[in-house]
């Protein structure tokens, strides 16, 4: 569904590589977690997959189509949820959803049904008549999720989707992600919440300084250790046991 081959991004020619020769393959039915510290290159990669950012080298294919050569076809079957839900604050929630419905050419009857269903799941139905400017961060995030699902995409790309969500909405989103992929969809998302990645993802990729450190089935990547231990070892060269011993020594 999403194939990233030798993706490289430099923001300025001759400058450092924000992402260097990254290759990933997200198949239908997979929830693919993308892990790394702040500034590792996760958002840059995600934005390139959505056609927001151009890239220096490599290729990104969505359902076999190049995001560079056929961007409209790619965008029609995917949806993107950013880490910071900057939405049109001058619109009401329902105006925004209707606008997204128009942009993705969702028939009126289908959009009514989907808005009713997804906004009820997210618990924002009552607030849809209010201006988005009056929404909290979490409500904006929920609205962005509802908007992303309006055209029933095959590929969902999400940047830190759980930030700002209350426990109920996070639970519903996790359940939805699983159902979505069980029905043949694919999800590529970044997160800092390692517990969520460990429990939810089929596969993960860990990135540091724009370079891929590890990727594959979650069980293969973490082996007998917890994801947190593997992540810290790979990214920070910290062995959790050593750290605990050192702390213990200090405390003693």
């Amino acid at each position: 569904m999403l194939k990233i081959s030798h993706y490289t991004k430099q923001y300025s020619s001759g400058g450092p590589k924000a992402v260097d020769d990254l290759s990933l393959h997200i198949r239908p039915g997979e929830i693919y977690g993308f892990l790394g510290h702040n500034g590792a290159g996760k958002t840059t990669t995600i934005k390139a997959c959505c056609g927001i950012l151009d890239f220096t080298e490599g290729e990104i294919l969505v359902n076999g189509m190049s995001i560079r050569k056929q961007p409209l076809e790619c965008k029609k079957i995917m949806a993107y949820i950013p880490d910071n839900p900057d939405l049109y604050e001058f619109m009401s929630g329902i105006q925004y959803l209707n606008f997204i419905g128009d942009v993705y050419r969702v028939p009126a009857d289908k959009r009514e049904k989907r808005i009713a269903e997804y906004s009820a799941d997210m618990g924002i139905t009552d607030a849809l008549a209010e201006k988005i400017a009056s929404y909290s961060h979490g409500m904006k995030q929920k609205l962005a999720i509802v908007a992303a699902l309006m055209h029933e995409p095959k590929l969902l790309i999400m940047d830190e989707p759980f930030v700002g969500l209350d426990p109920k909405a996070a639970f519903i989103l996790k359940k939805f992600m699983r159902t979505f992929c069980d029905n043949g969809g694919a999800i590529f998302f970044s997160t800092h919440v390692l517990d969520v990645a460990e429990k939810l993802c089929d596969k993960i990729a860990i990135i540091r300084g724009g370079k891929l450190l590890a990727d594959g089935d979650i069980e293969t990547v973490k082996g007998n250790e917890s994801l947190e231990e593997v992540f810290l070892e790979l990214v920070d060269n910290i062995r959790v046991g050593d750290e605990q011993d050192q702390d213990g020594g200090k405390n003693a």
């Binding site: 049109y88 001058f90 619109m91 929630g93 329902i94 105006q95 209707n98 606008f99 419905g101 128009d102 942009v103 050419r105 969702v106 028939p107 009126a108 959009r111 009514e112 808005i115 009713a116 139905t125 009552d126 607030a127 849809l128 008549a129 209010e130």
Partner: peptide, 26 residues
């Protein structure tokens, strides 16, 4: 006072008219 949303019929329009309406609302 908060306005409670009452679901009603939604009107669909072309992408370009939706964009134009968005510009006007802004």
């Amino acid at each position: 006072k908060k306005i409670r949303y009452e679901a009603g019929k939604l009107k669909s329009s072309s992408a370009i008219w939706a964009l134009t309406k968005k510009e006007l609302t802004c």
